[in-house]
Amino acid sequence: MLRLLYALLLGLVGAGIVHIAVLLLLPMISQNDAWSRLAASSDLYKITRLDAESGVTPVVRSVDPLFDAAACRFDLSDGVLKVTANGHAPFWSVSVYNRAGENIYSFNDHTLPDGGIDFIVLTSTQLVELRKEMPEGLDKSIYVESPDEQGIVVVRGFVPDKSWEKQVVDFLGGISCAPEQQQ
């Protein structure tokens, strides 16, 4: 009887340890996170629509049905990432996520003066390098410092009704997400 009680107690302590271990390991081993899902459907730097287009199951669940969203994965070991887009949507917002899918930076269309998207993602080392000699054309961009080399950029555009659909789709389709060539 006493041994049974001892076994039960040991089992409960073990359950606690397993609970913590599973919890902490989950983000590292998950094959289901946003990065892995995107990697399964498209290459690095390729703009991928996140919302369901005509019955296709969405790659990453885009929460709001009134929004269209597009994402691209990046790897800063290829050089700094430059993202630009021109166009107009009633509201758009941009988020930069790290490898684990955590939001490290976000801004919306009120952040930039002319309403277009123009920003650069880089590591702190690359920022120091870039500051030494500022290249042409990068001086007006927003700088997003990323702690990891890999990450995801997501652009969301608000579609108030069907008549805006084409304009927002064109806006998202016109996003350029590519590593900036370094000298």
Binding site: L26, N32, S36, V60, V63, R156
Partner: peptide, 13 residues
């Protein structure tokens, strides 16, 4: 976040 593969809205969004 890792299990469900969600990309949450940022603070500015």
């Amino acid at each position: 976040v890792a299990r469900e593969g969600i990309l949450t809205l940022g603070r500015a969004e």
